[in-house]
Amino acid sequence: MTDTPMIAVRSVNKWFGAFHVLKDVDLVVQRGQKVVVCGPSGSGKSTLIRCINRLEEHDEGEIIVDGIRLDESLEHIAAIRREVGMVFQQFNLFPHLTVLENCVLAQVRARKTPRADAEARAMQYLARVRIPEQASKYPGQLSGGQQQRVAIARSLCMEPKVMLFDEPTSALDPEMIKEVLDVMTDLAQSGMTMICVTHEMGFARKVADLMVFMDHGRVVESSPPAEFFAAPRSDRTRQFLDQILSH
């Protein structure tokens, strides 16, 4: 069991109508591995990770998470969503609930955790993302960086085995990016399996075990960061790196 990969994506194809958005995508993520996915806008990065927790459906190929095959079975989908947490570019906190309630809701409803335990766990993870003092505020009263850290805590409260991040810092003001990346770095060092779509190459160098570069729906390059940054195999990757590292 423990030597099966955490996530296996094999020959996945997906279309939006006539538009071929994922083309024969393969991606294997071992337990505890950190994968950073980068690539130009529209290359299919979000679609790929959204397929992993079934926010999108893939049309061909197979996706297996922790030994569970992602198919039509609602139990499989539910089981996979239990294991996979997701953090969105736009945070997607529940604006009508306090920070604490944001973290408690799904524990109580989906896990049937007793409220007192759920609140204790919520406070524990809010402390871990360094904002326990904001627990009684509403998301609209927090800065973007604080909101994103709450979103991370909310996901962690479900104790997932994998965390997916979809450009978690792209909607943030520059001065708030670091506080979110620091939390993500901590999480990476704690041994969490992670797939991060991000263009923060400093973060990528620090935590990634595997770099994936996507373009036009294909995985163009997939290699360890040392190799990826020093000697990219494809021209397309080199161009892309030049572009984003030059500013």
Binding site: L55, F88, Q90, L105, A106, R109, A110, A151
Partner: peptide, 17 residues
């Protein structure tokens, strides 16, 4: 907003909740 549905689903909440 659509993101509210996505956040709820990714947390494992069912349609009723």
């Amino acid at each position: 907003r659509k993101g509210q549905w996505e956040a709820a689903r990714s947390l494992g909440l069912g349609p009723f909740d």
